[in-house]
Each structure stands twice: as C-alpha cells, then as structure tokens.
Design a protein around this nucleic acid. Sequence first.
DNA 1: ATTGCATATCGATTATTCTCGATATATAAT
DNA 2: ATTATATATCGAGAATAATCGATATGCAAT
Lengths: 76, 76
Amino acid sequence: MQWLKEPEKHFPDVYPEGVCVSDIQKKVELSQSTVSLYLSILQDAGFIQSTRQGQWTYYKRNEKQIEEIKQYMMDL
Amino acid sequence: MQWLKEPEKHFPDVYPEGVCVSDIQKKVELSQSTVSLYLSILQDAGFIQSTRQGQWTYYKRNEKQIEEIKQYMMDL
DNA sequence: ATTGCATATCGATTATTCTCGATATATAAT
DNA sequence: ATTATATATCGAGAATAATCGATATGCAAT
C-alpha cells in the first residue's frame, strides 16, 4: 500500500491504471500465487482496484476506501 | 477498547484506575483465562495500562499510545 | 492455618492465516 | 494450431492466533 502511494518511486513501469502484478511480485519477494491472492484480498476489501489490460492486470490504490478506514480508525 | 472510552456507560463499577477483569469478562463473554490473556496482550502493546489493587486488577486505556497508532494509520 | 475470591499462567485443541508449487485460464505472437 | 507470457485458482503444509479448562498465585477474611 505504501509503495502504491508513489508508484513511480518504487516500480519500473507505472500506468494510469496502476502497476502490474509481476512488478509487485519482484519487489515483494513472495511467490506469484501468493501475491495474486493478496492483491485479490485487498481488492475484495476495496483498498485497491484492478484493471485488466490484455494479459496484464494493473492495480492501484482506491483512495476513497482507504480514507474510509482511516476515518474508522480515528474512532479507536 | 470502545467500551473503555466511556466505561461508565458499559460497566457497573468504574474506578479512576479503570475497570476490573471480571466485569470485562462478564461483558465480553469469553473465558476468564482468555480475557486475562487478551488484556495482557493489549497491555504489552501499550494500548491499556493496569493497576493492581488488592486482589483486583483494573485496566484502562492508554490514550497516549492509542494516539500514536492513530497517527501511524493516518500514513496509510 | 484455612478458605474464598480475583487474576494470571500453563498446556492443549481448534481455527485461521501464510505461503508455496502445480495447474488452469486468458491473451498475444508465431 | 502452437507456444509463450501474465495472472488466477487449487490443494496442501506449516505457522500463528483464538480459545478453553485446569492449575497456580496473590490477597483478604475468617
């Protein structure tokens, strides 16, 4: 999530739709299947959103949902 | 944590040092040992603080530490 | 000293999460 | 049609968390 705040600083190729799974995988150093699963969990939770483009899937932050959980945390 | 924000609203007896374990246990409906463990974990994390008084242990929120994790979450 | 409560710790079981390799699916290029 | 690449899904094992009952400890009252 932190990397995706300023993706240009952390990934070689950044598109408007986000960053592709394999770039994330290289950086996070977990298996491809694990990364894919984590991304899908984050997406299910609404924290990131995906765009399929050809054989690639790009992920980027969903600031709206992130803002919501921040507000929720403020109530702690 | 939420209950302890306004303990008078949720517990029968509230002291300046906080709320005793057994009152929390009644409310949370978990076994005594589980509640005691959870409280000690929260304390180790710094989110609550305990005061032993005779045979009772009172717990209350540690707003300082709570504020810190809130700030941390703001960086999400 | 003994008993009775409040809380803490121990040991064990079950449930959940983490993580992987293997396989499947979708798309792109030959 | 075949092959190559990117991603997703499946099935399984290991690691961690949740939870309990039993027991221990500390303190208070007899």
